[in-house]
Amino acid sequence: MPSFTLTVNGATHTVTAEADSPLLWVLRDKLALTGTKFGCGVGACSACSVHIDGDFARSCQWSIADAAGHHVTTIESLETTELGRRLQQAWIDEQVPQCGYCQSGQLMAAAALLKDTPRPTDADIDNGMSDNICRCATYLRIRKAIHRAAGNGEAK
């Protein structure tokens, strides 16, 4: 199997994997970063959301060959940024998670949204977050938490 080098949460890793192996499974199985979740495998639910070079990405749709050489950020390092901490605190303040399984992906999607749109409207949030499925339907609280993290006060 070939080797690939990539940066994950600031650390450089060289992994041996099939070239078509999705980044998702490299993160979970080879790097033991299990906060990134498997939901559908076809890019339909966004439970596997991470950031690649700072942008939102579905890790089930990126092969390790494509991800090599890039900077990958996962839920495990969300707390290293001020925005990430604000989002996590907002998630706690609004008591967002229920089962919690999709929330890593929700938080990573929200962080990407606020990076590009620091003061989003409801419509911005709906547009930015509707790729992410939550089977517990915590959507209303996610929207409130994003507004809170953005400093929007009550939902617009």
């Binding site: 299990t34 969300l78 996590q88 998630w91 967002v96 998670p97 919690g100 890593s104 938080l107």
Partner: peptide
Amino acid sequence: DIPAKVNGTAQFGIDTR
């Protein structure tokens, strides 16, 4: 259970190693 569900540390079955 919520704090562990905002930072990836909550252990689900699929996370077992």
